[in-house]
């Protein structure tokens, strides 16, 4: 056995910087992805065929192609069309669009899981469709959606390691750099793994509390 974590201790500040970059990437792309998902999900259940088609094409493309290909098109491909994105911008955009496509399906299925009678009752009380969606369907659907959304968020956080390939110095790429000077692959990769685990555990803990809060009406 030749394990020595002490040699990489001096690199802790670098790990923390990398982890911070991963957290920033994740929070931004999850926030944008969630908004895209809500918009996309509403399009999917809309009465307008055009909206439904737009949402269909969006999810079809972004769920049907690898995230890596999407990131490479955004960062390496677009400059050819005269659109030059910073690595961070391309990374956020790619992760957000990808997450948004999956969230679209989750939001759609969450809305459709609510009894049709709920919207009918809202409408018969004079609520418009949008008020019914915000006040009646939304709160019920979001409770159902939390567990699958958390799954999706965890996937996105882990997938954020892929933006290392478009030169962003997030956690994974930081680790790679440290290995080139220390040659301590096992130690570095296990530390990276633990940091991802900590970030995701925090997310799961927050989700758990949120879910409990929204379930107030299930208590009998």
């Amino acid at each position: 056995m030749n394990l020595d974590y002490s040699t990489i201790m001096p690199f802790m500040p670098a790990f923390i910087d990398g982890a911070w970059m991963t957290v920033k990437l994740s929070i931004l792309s999850l926030a944008i992805g969630l908004l895209l998902g809500i918009a996309g999900g509403l399009c999917k259940v809309s009465e307008s065929k055009l909206m439904r088609n737009i949402a269909f094409v969006y999810t079809w493309i972004f769920r049907g192609t690898p995230l890596l290909v999407q990131l490479f098109i955004l960062y390496f491909g677009l400059p050819q069309l005269g659109i030059r994105l910073e690595p961070f911008e391309a990374g956020i955009l790619g992760l957000a669009l990808n997450t948004g496509a999956y969230c679209t399906e989750l939001v759609r299925s969450g809305i459709q899981a609510i009894d049709k009678g709920q919207m009918e009752a809202a409408r018969s009380l004079g609520m418009s469709k949008s008020i019914g969606m915000i006040r009646i369907i939304g709160p019920q659907a979001s409770k159902i959606m939390i567990p699958p959304l958390v799954n999706q968020f965890i996937t996105t956080i882990k997938n954020s390691s892929m933006v290392s390939l478009i030169t962003i110095a997030e956690l994974f790429r930081t680790g790679e750099t440290i290995i080139t000077t220390t040659f301590r692959s096992f130690e570095v990769y296990t530390i990276i793994g633990v940091i991802y685990l900590v970030i995701n555990s925090l997310l799961m803990a927050v989700a758990h509390r949120l879910e409990k809060g929204l379930s107030a009406h299930d208590r009998v």
């Binding site: 009894d115 709920q118 009752a121 018969s124 609520m127 009406h217």
Partner: peptide, 19 residues
């Protein structure tokens, strides 16, 4: 909205808002 303020409806399966 106008119509529904003048006409109320009660459903077979109640459809109360559970939340």
């Amino acid at each position: 909205s106008q119509l529904s303020t003048e006409i109320g409806m009660v459903f077979q399966r109640f459809h109360l808002f559970p939340h």
